[in-house]
């Protein structure tokens, strides 16, 4: 084996090892955030780290370790699928958390949803006053 190829091999191995350790540390950061943050919305912020960046780093380390080109599109498909599903479920959880008052209002710097909710409740009340009890 010529020395140049083994040097490149070493660099690829080291890069993928760093990617793996950092990707695992993302999971640890999410767990620490889950344990230490005070309410649901800030815990959601911590929980997305291993789902997007951690998965990206680990898939990249798989691609580096396999030493072939054809795995990269497959890994990209897996990552894009995760990118499509994670925001939807996070939206659902955040919406349900807002509706069921699982948040510390004093920790919010701005609440743009509250005006919308107030307006919707006001218009629903107006319609109820016009048409009697809708049932």
């Amino acid at each position: 084996m010529n020395p140049e190829a083994s040097l490149v091999d070493n660099i690829i191995d080291t890069t993928s090892a760093v990617f793996m350790v950092v990707g695992a540390l993302m999971s640890l950061a999410a767990a620490v955030g889950l344990l230490r943050f005070p309410d649901l919305l800030s815990r959601m912020h911590a929980a997305t780290k291993p789902q997007v960046l951690g998965l990206f780093l680990l898939l990249a380390s798989i691609g580096l370790q396999m030493r072939t080109w054809w795995v990269w599109p497959v890994l990209l498909v897996a990552w894009i699928f995760q990118l499509l599903t994670v925001p939807v479920s996070a939206h659902m959880v955040g919406r349900a958390g807002y509706r069921t008052k699982h948040l510390h209002r004093e920790l919010l710097s701005s609440d743009e949803l509250e005006a919308v909710v107030q307006k919707a409740a006001q218009s629903a009340r107006d319609e109820g006053a016009d048409a009697g009890r809708p049932d």
Binding site: S27, A30, A31, L34, L40, R43, M44, A47, P50, Q51, G54, L55, S89, V93
Partner: peptide
């Protein structure tokens, strides 16, 4: 639910 999602990611 959020914590079990994180467990799944781990």
């Amino acid at each position: 639910v959020l914590a079990s999602d994180v467990l799944l990611a781990i």
